[in-house]
C-alpha cells in the first residue's frame, strides 16, 4: 500500500519537473524520417518566434501511425498516404506538409551529373533484371553521344521499409505494366535483382562502392552529398534534370482538387518541365483531439510553416506546398478538427 503511494508521489513529482521544464504547450509528433530534417528546422525557428517547441521523433511512418492511432503523440507523420478507411476508423485528418522528390544516382567512370539519360521503362527493366549491361541498346538509344561501357548494371535499393521505396516503386508501377504485375508498390517490395542498403546513406554508399551501380535516393540526400544524378524522361517525353523548378512543376500539375484526403499523386504528372518521381509527405491529426488546445498548437505550427517556412524548406531542398493547396488544408482544419463540437482553429 505504502509502496504504491510512494510510487504515485514519485511519478507526480517526476511529471511536474518535466512539464515545468518543457513548458506545457510543447507539441509532440512522431513518424516519417524523410521530412524529419525540415520539421526539426521549422521547430527551431518556430520556437524562437512563438515559444512553443516541437518534439518530433523520426521513428518511421509505420511506428508514427501506431503512435497516433494510440494517441500517444499530438500528430503522426507518414510518407505514404494512409488508406481512406483507416483514416475514417481512426478519426484522423490527413494533410500534406512538404513535397520531396526521388532521383536516380549512378556510379560510372567519367560520367558527370545529369549526363546519363534514362526513361521509366529502362529503370524498371534494370530493376527487373532484364537490362543488365550499361551498353544495352535501349540505354544507348537515348544516350547518343555518351560513351557507355560494357559493364554490368548493379541495381541498388533501400533494404529498410521506406516512403522513398514506396514512391519509387509506385513510379515504376506507373510506367511499367510488367513491374506492376510482378512486383508492385509498397514501403518495401520483393526486388527481383540487385542488393539493398539501409537508408539513403546505405544506398549511396553501396552505389559508391560498386562500379556500374544504379540507386535511388531522396533529392535532398543526393544534392547535399553531390551524388551523380541522372536525367529522366517525363510523361511529356522530355528529358529533365532533377531541379527544384521541375519538382515545383510536378506539385503544380497534380490533381489536388480531385484527391481524397489530399492523397494527390505527383507521380508521372503531365507538363514539359515536370520531374516524374515527386511525392508529398503527410501529417495525421486527430479529428476529435483529446485536448483542443494541443491540436490548435499543432495547426498553428503548420499554418506558420506553410506561411513562413517555405524558405527553410527550400534551403533543405524540399518543395513547399503550392499556396492553393495550403489554403485547401487550412479549410480542412477549420471544418474537420473539432473539440466538443467546436473547431479548434478558426483563422
Amino acid at each position: 500500500m505504502k509502496f504504491t503511494h510512494l510510487l504515485g508521489a514519485a511519478a507526480l513529482s517526476f511529471g511536474a519537473v518535466f512539464s515545468g521544464a518543457a513548458f506545457a504547450a510543447d507539441i509532440t509528433g512522431a513518424g516519417a524520417t524523410f521530412p524529419a530534417p525540415v520539421y526539426q528546422a521549422w521547430a527551431v525557428a518556430y520556437k524562437e518566434k512563438s515559444g512553443t517547441g516541437l518534439n518530433y521523433q523520426s521513428i518511421g511512418s509505420g511506428a508514427g501511425q501506431t503512435q497516433i492511432f494510440n494517441r500517444t503523440v499530438d500528430f503522426g507523420a507518414s510518407d505514404a498516404p494512409v488508406a481512406a478507411e483507416k483514416l475514417e476508423a481512426q478519426k484522423l485528418l490527413q494533410f500534406p506538409a512538404v513535397i520531396g522528390s526521388v532521383v536516380a544516382i549512378v556510379n560510372l567512370d567519367g560520367v558527370s551529373a545529369n549526363q546519363i539519360k534514362l526513361t521509366g521503362p529502362i529503370i524498371a527493366d534494370i530493376y527487373l533484371g532484364k537490362i543488365t549491361k550499361w551498353n544495352d541498346p535501349k540505354i544507348v538509344e537515348v544516350n547518343k553521344g555518351s560513351q557507355l561501357p560494357d559493364l554490368s548494371i548493379v541495381p541498388v535499393y533501400r533494404s529498410d521499409g521506406s516512403g522513398t521505396t514506396y514512391v519509387f516503386a509506385t513510379y515504376l508501377s506507373t510506367v511499367s505494366p510488367e513491374w506492376k504485375s510482378s512486383v508492385g508498390a509498397a514501403t518495401s517490395v520483393q526486388w527481383p535483382a540487385g542488393a539493398g542498403g539501409k537508408g539513403n546513406e546505405g544506398v549511396a554508399g553501396t552505389v559508391k562502392n560498386t562500379k556500374g551501380a544504379i540507386g535511388y535516393v531522396e533529392y535532398i540526400y543526393a544534392s547535399s552529398n553531390s551524388l551523380i544524378t541522372t536525367e529522366l524522361q517525363n510523361k511529356a517525353g522530355k528529358f529533365v534534370s532533377p531541379t527544384v523548378p521541375s519538382f515545383q512543376a510536378a506539385a503544380a500539375n497534380a490533381d489536388w482538387a480531385g484527391a481524397k484526403n489530399f492523397a494527390a499523386s505527383m507521380i508521372d504528372t503531365p507538363g514539359d518541365t515536370t520531374w516524374p518521381i515527386t511525392s508529398a509527405t503527410f501529417i495525421l491529426l486527430p479529428k476529435e483531439p483529446k485536448s483542443g488546445t494541443q491540436a490548435a498548437e499543432v495547426i498553428k505550427f503548420f499554418d506558420w510553416a506553410f506561411k513562413d517556412g517555405g524558405a527553410i524548406a527550400e534551403k533543405l531542398h524540399y518543395i513547399p506546398l503550392p499556396e492553393d493547396v495550403a489554403n485547401r488544408v487550412r479549410e480542412a482544419w477549420k471544418t474537420e478538427v473539432k473539440a466538443d463540437g467546436k473547431p479548434v482553429w478558426t483563422h
Partner: peptide
C-alpha cells in the same frame, strides 16, 4: 546478397503498419 532474420526485422520493423 541475402538476409538474416535479425537484419530483416531491423530493416522492415519501422515501416510495418500496426495490425498488418
Amino acid at each position: 546478397p541475402g538476409s538474416t532474420i535479425a537484419s530483416t526485422i531491423a530493416n522492415e520493423f519501422p515501416e510495418a503498419a500496426p495490425g498488418s
